[in-house]
């Protein structure tokens, strides 16, 4: 965590920007943005950047952003929870960026929306139990 002041944290409802300060980053500090206090908002302000607003993903040069719409792997809630927390391949980790509550909200959202019908909600406690330490390198 670098250059993150408390006022920014509270305003952003987040715990960290994704800005690595070693790199040719923006200002080296996170900026405020809309409060993301439900799964719909988290999805459409964060996840949709790659998975697209309709959850259908996209195809690039020999590689893709996978579709979440109709993805049978979402049946097991632990799978998307782990992916959001830890990332894998092109998917960045959101541990340290989104709160337990935001991750629970958005996993619940993608499993019950975007054409998916797994209605059992994921709780912040379940997310917390799966958290592993991930620290952006200085």
């Amino acid at each position: 965590m670098r250059g993150v002041s408390l006022s920014f944290l509270l305003l952003a409802g987040m715990s960290l920007s994704g800005a690595p300060a070693r790199a040719d980053t923006a200002g080296g500090v996170p900026s405020t943005m809309t409060r993301l206090d439900n799964g719909d908002l988290v999805y459409h302000h964060i996840c949709a950047a790659c998975h697209m607003a309709d959850g259908k993903g996209a195809r690039g040069a020999g590689a893709k952003y996978p579709a979440l719409a109709g993805d049978p792997k979402l049946a097991i809630a632990a799978y998307p929870t782990m992916m959001v927390l830890n990332g894998h391949g092109g998917m960045p980790w959101f541990a340290g960026i989104l709160t337990d509550r935001q991750i629970a909200d958005v996993v619940t959202y993608i499993r019950s929306h975007l054409g998916n019908r797994w209605m059992d909600p994921v709780t912040p406690e379940q997310v917390r139990e799966m958290r592993q330490p991930i620290t952006l390198e200085e």
């Binding site: 952003a12 800005a19 923006a26 459409h44 302000h45």
Partner: peptide
């Protein structure tokens, strides 16, 4: 504008 992290994702959407 020049953003990284969540703000960049938000603008990307």
């Amino acid at each position: 504008g020049y953003m990284f992290g969540p703000a960049a994702m938000d603008f990307t959407t």
